[in-house]
């Protein structure tokens, strides 16, 4: 079983549209949406949710108002400025402390040091995750709650579930839609994957972000391929990007033209492959072929 992770560094380069197209081209794959704080793949794959689960990423402190003696020890030991002195009155003091749930890091230090035993430490439900059926095969996806934490843990959980499902159903490939950036959810998406495909575009910003994300994949020693989307909006820069990454021994396996079909397909709720049969889909099919060959262990470039 192989795992392909599609990431981009910079957001909005077309990563999810490409994953959706891959989903309709892959014959025996499990799909996993690991862009947990702005998930969009479900808008195209229209998953039929079969199983719904709470995601408990960590714990969260909360003051039991009746017990608070207003001593301020919690505020003193909190490194995240989460304990604030504007809770309601109780029988003991005129003002109590409360914990700002958004600022709370879930470290539990206040819970331990509270002399009145007035702070609870309960599991925090940070979101939900789902196992679904789609017209292209099983899908694992999630919804991180608003302003919630632990996106990296949720990503790891989704990948683990996708692997289990792949094993159960004899699927030979997992296609992961990653998130933008180079931080915790991205690291959780790519560690120990078989192949990373970076979707970039010929803009100075995307080029800058591409270098950072390639460095990240290199840091974790994951084989990497690059696809230049909308290459024709700035051909000169597209060529420059190709030359630069060639120096790092990374292959450009696709050059996809700018095409309004991408947005039209999205509005129709279809993958590019389903929506149209023009030159764009041919380009994506050849990209898919190159990626599949690399996954099968062949050298491409």
């Amino acid at each position: 079983m192989k795992e392909l992770v599609v990431i981009s560094g910079k957001g909005g380069t077309g990563k999810t549209s490409i994953v959706a197209a891959f989903a309709s081209l892959a014959e025996n794959a499990v799909l996993a949406d690991c862009d947990v704080d702005a998930a969009d793949l479900h808008l195209i794959l229209a998953p039929d949710i079969k199983q719904r689960n709470d995601f408990i990423g960590g714990k969260r402190a909360s003051v039991i108002t009746e017990k608070c003696i207003g001593c301020g020890k919690c505020a003193q030991v909190c490194n995240f400025d989460a304990a604030v002195f504007d809770g309601p009155v109780n029988d003991l003091v005129r003002k109590t402390y409360k914990i700002d749930p958004v600022a709370c890091e879930g470290c539990g230090v206040c819970v331990h040091f509270c002399p009145a035993d007035a702070i609870e430490f309960k599991d925090a439900v940070n979101g939900q995750w789902f196992i679904s059926d789609t017209r292209f095969g099983p899908m694992v996806h999630a919804e991180l709650g608003i302003a919630e934490e632990n996106s990296g843990k949720l990503v790891s959980l989704i990948r683990k579930q996708a692997k289990q499902i792949a094993a159960q159903h004899n699927k030979d490939l997992i296609i992961v839609d990653g998130s933008p950036g180079i931080g915790c959810p991205v690291i959780a998406s790519i560690t120990a994957a078989d192949l990373v495909l970076v979707v970039t575009e010929p803009t100075v910003s995307a080029q800058h972000d591409l270098e950072r994300v390639i460095e990240l994949a290199g840091h974790f020693k994951i084989p990497t391929l690059v696809c230049i989307n909308k290459y024709d909006i700035n051909r000169k820069m597209a060529a420059e990007i190709a030359r630069k990454i060639d120096n790092r021994n990374i292959a450009v396996v696709g050059r996809i033209p700018y095409d309004t079909t991408v947005t039209k397909a999205q509005i129709a709720g279809q993958s590019i492959i389903e929506y149209s049969n023009n030159g764009l889909s041919e380009q994506i099919k050849s990209l898919w072929l190159a990626v599949s060959e690399r996954l099968a262990g062949k050298e491409v470039g």
Partner: peptide
């Protein structure tokens, strides 16, 4: 995104401009 880095960046500001594009 909408998770911890975003919360940290916008906490305490006076006004937020949310940039989007007219697509699904």
């Amino acid at each position: 995104g909408t998770s911890c880095p975003v919360v940290e960046a916008i906490r305490g500001v006076d006004f937020v401009l949310l940039v989007t594009e007219p697509t699904p």
